[in-house]
């Protein structure tokens, strides 16, 4: 089945819309429903639309990193988010550390955000890899 002209020309726009929403959902997850997992799924949906309309090769080119590498990057970020805990010799792995820079409002930055970002990338990579392996056939 050949994708329609409308889908093909709008898929890039859709992709960026979905990525924007996914980043919003990722950041919103701090104190409201949302977070890395659902954000990653939304972004993966964007990639899926792109892959369906333009083909697997175009989607891989657009991602630059192989989906498995994306997943690896996510795991690395998530694992690294637990390491600052060791700055305190008594604290166990993954103990939260916070940083509140004041730029007009107090930004609640900290290791949980880093962890969520890792989850986001891992989910995006895994779901994309699975989806692309199905598109291949």
């Amino acid at each position: 089945m050949k994708p329609t002209l409308i889908l093909r020309s709008s898929s890039a726009l859709l992709l960026w819309c979905l990525v924007a929403v996914s980043v919003y959902v990722l950041l919103r997850g701090h104190n409201a429903p949302g977070g890395g997992f659902i954000g990653g799924l939304i972004a993966a949906a964007g990639v899926a639309v792109y892959a369906v309309s333009r083909g697997r090769a175009a989607a891989l080119r657009m991602l630059r990193l192989h989906p498995a590498a994306l997943c690896g990057l996510g795991l690395l970020v998530a694992a690294a988010s637990g390491l600052p805990a060791f700055l305190d010799s008594a604290a166990a792995y993954l103990t939260h550390r916070w940083w509140f820079p004041d730029v007009g409002i107090q930004l609640p930055l900290g290791t949980p955000l880093l962890f969520d970002l890792g989850v986001y990338l891992t989910v995006l990579g895994t779901v994309t890899a699975m989806f692309l392996s199905l598109v291949e056939k």
Partner: peptide
Amino acid sequence: MQPLLASPLLIPLATAAMTALLWSR
């Protein structure tokens, strides 16, 4: 002590992530 306790989990996780990052090499 605590880093040593977490290391059996962290090392394979980091290695899996690194080898995935090096997917095409």
